[in-house]
Design a protein around this nucleic acid. Structure first.
Lengths: 232, 232
DNA sequence: GTCTATAATTAGATAGAC
DNA sequence: GTCTATCTAATTATAGAC
C-alpha cells in the first residue's frame, strides 16, 4: 500500500550496480519494519523511539525518514506487515477459513485452534493492537477500518449462524468476540509477565496446545449435542 | 506505602491555616494520582507526559516532583490506587471472596460475575497492567510481586480444587487464569476500539450482564452435573 | 505548598557530504 | 542510498521567588 520511494526516476536501464543498491535498500526497509514491529509492540507508538528502531535494524535513525515519510508511516507499514504474517500463519494452521462455506461446529473448533497457534507465534500483533485500542486516535481509526472490522464481521457471522441453529451456547456475538480474542491472546501478549509469574518455560508448545483445547471446550462445550438440534 | 512529604517538621501545633494547607496538599496529591491513572492507562508509562498529568489534575508540572519523588513514584502510587479501587469494587459485588472457605461452583460463578462487573467499571487498571506486561522492566517486576501473584494463587487454588473434584472442565490452571482475565477484561480495556467497531453504546450495562452470564456459562458449563461427581 | 523560570536530556525530522 | 551533523520542539527534573 505504501509506495516505496521512486528508485528509477527516469528511463535509465537497470545496471548491476543499481540492482544491488535496490536490493540493499529493500533489505534496509524490511529490517526497519521488523525492528519497528518489535519496538512498537514492546513500548507503544509514543514510547518507541526511532533511534531504538534504527539501532535494532542495524542502520541509522535518518533512514526512517528516507524510507518512510514519518514515524507514523513506519508504524502503518509495520502494522500491515504483522497482519500479513497473521494471515499466513492462519492459512498454515487450517485448510479452510471461516467464510468459505456453511459454518459447522467442527470448522469453528479448527478455526479456534488455528487462532491460538497463530497468535502464540505472533504476540507482537496483539500487543500493538491493544496498545492502540486503549485510547482513541487516528491510528486506531485506521487500524479498525483496515484490519479489524472484516475479521470481526467474519467471526460474528459464523457464531451467529451456529447460535441460530442451537449448535453453540446462546451468547451474544459481541460478547463472544471480545471473550475469544482476549482469552486467546492475553497469555502471549503478557508473556513477560507470565514468565515472572509462572517461570521461564510456562508458555511453551504444550501450553499452546492445552490452551487451544481448553478454549474449544469453553466456547463450544465438551461435545456436540447429539440429535436434538434443528436448523432455523 | 509511599510516605507523604513531611508536613510538620517540628512540634508546631496544628493551626487552622496549616490544617487548610494540608487539606489542599492532600487534594493536589489525590488529583495527581487520579490524573496519572487516566494518562498512564491511555498512553503507557513512557507515552504519558507529566505535563499532561499535571494539566489534567488542574495543577502545574513541578508539583509532581514535589509530591512524589519522580514520575516512577507517581506511577507506583497510581497503581496502588487502582488496585485499592479494584478490591473495593470486588467487595461491593460479592459477599465472600474466593479464599474464605471451601470453594464451590456457585461461589466461583459469583466471583466471575463480580470480576466482570468490577473490571467493567475500572478499565484503567487492566490497561495499565497490559501496557506494562508487554515488556519486562523493574515496573513489571514490582507489579507482579506486589499485586498480581497473590491474586493468581487465589484463582489457581480455587480452580484446582474444583477441577480435582470434577466440578469443572479438566483445563490447566494457567490456561484458565489467562483465559479468564483476557476474556473478562478485553472489551473494557479496548473500549475505544469497541466504540468504533460496534457503535457508541455497545459496551453498556446490558453488555456487562450478558458478558458476566456468558463467561459463567463458558467457564463453568451451562449447569452443574447433577449427582455423578465424587469428591477426591 | 504552589508558582514561574529554566536546566539537562532526548525526541523526530532535515541538510548536505559522499 | 547511506552516512554525519544538527535543528527545533518536547521531555523530566530542579532552583528559587512568594
Amino acid at each position: 500500500m505504501a509506495d516505496p520511494p521512486a528508485s528509477s526516476p527516469s528511463s535509465s536501464p537497470p545496471t548491476s550496480a543499481t540492482r544491488r543498491r535496490q536490493a540493499r535498500a529493500d533489505a534496509t526497509r524490511l529490517a526497519l519494519i521488523e525492528a519497528a514491529v518489535h519496538e512498537f509492540a514492546a513500548h507503544g507508538f509514543e514510547g518507541a523511539s526511532t533511534r531504538a528502531i534504527a539501532t535494532r535494524a542495524g542502520t541509522h535513525q535518518p533512514q526512517i525518514n528516507y524510507h518512510f515519510e514519518s514515524k507514523d508511516e513506519l508504524w502503518r507499514a509495520a502494522v500491515d506487515h504483522v497482519f500479513a504474517k497473521l494471515d499466513a500463519a492462519l492459512a498454515a494452521h487450517q485448510i479452510e477459513g471461516l467464510g468459505a462455506d456453511e459454518i459447522t461446529r467442527d470448522r469453528l473448533a479448527d478455526a479456534i485452534r488455528a487462532i491460538v497457534r497463530a497468535v502464540a507465534q505472533l504476540p507482537e500483533l496483539n500487543r500493538i493492537m491493544i496498545q492502540e485500542a486503549t485510547a482513541d486516535s487516528d491510528r486506531l481509526a485506521w487500524i479498525v477500518e483496515r484490519h479489524t472490522r472484516g475479521r470481526y464481521d467474519l467471526l460474528a457471522e459464523a457464531w451467529g449462524s451456529l447460535r441460530r441453529r442451537r449448535l453453540v451456547a446462546d451468547i451474544d456475538e459481541t460478547v463472544v468476540y471480545y471473550a475469544l480474542i482476549g482469552a486467546s491472546t492475553l497469555a502471549y501478549v503478557n508473556a513477560p509477565e507470565a514468565r515472572r509469574l509462572l517461570g521461564d518455560h510456562a508458555i511453551d508448545d504444550a501450553f499452546v496446545e492445552a490452551h487451544a483445547d481448553g478454549l474449544v471446550t469453553m466456547f463450544l462445550g465438551p461435545e456436540p449435542a447429539a440429535g436434538g438440534a434443528s436448523a432455523d
